[in-house]
């Protein structure tokens, strides 16, 4: 049996993955990118060139809301400026979009599975 190829996320799938990751808790860009890789056992990768433009788009569509936080090291000078970190949170509209995407995905998978199982049934017969 041939080795399965490494899947590549299409735009709609990347959107679903990011919205799903934000469902549990707010995250910042790097954390999203790290979680995508970790939760797919390294199979999926969202490069910064794909991730940040996608987040910009989701924010513009009102599917996520963003807020900024200033972060510092524990050992840093308390008076010095930290760097800014952008946090993304799923909006109510984003939750609806996610539900819709999940439903679409499940239906699509179910339909494809129907074909695969059909083939398998015919093969065993």
């Amino acid at each position: 049996m041939p080795e399965p190829t490494t899947p590549k996320l299409k735009q709609e799938q990347a959107e679903l993955v990011v919205l799903a990751l934000l469902r549990d808790e707010p995250k910042y860009g790097y954390a999203i990118s790290r979680d995508v890789q970790a939760r797919s056992d390294g199979a999926f990768r969202l490069t910064p060139g794909a991730l940040y433009p996608l987040l910009t788009k989701l924010e513009k569509q009102g599917l996520v809301s963003a807020s900024w936080e200033e972060v510092k090291a524990d050992t840093a000078d308390p008076d010095a400026d930290g760097r800014r970190r952008k946090w993304y949170r799923l909006s109510a509209k984003g939750q609806r979009r996610l539900d819709q995407r999940i439903a679409d995905h499940r239906r699509f998978t179910q339909l494809i599975d129907g074909f695969i199982e059909g083939d398998a049934a015919r093969a065993s017969a």
């Binding site: 963003a66 807020s67 900024w68 936080e69 200033e70 972060v71 510092k72 090291a73 524990d74 840093a76 010095a80 400026d81 930290g82 760097r83």
Partner: peptide, 15 residues
């Protein structure tokens, strides 16, 4: 947008 401050390890200010 909101802004708040948290203290985190491994983070250095820009230089």
């Amino acid at each position: 947008m909101t802004s708040n401050t948290k203290s985190r390890a491994h983070v250095e200010p820009s230089a």
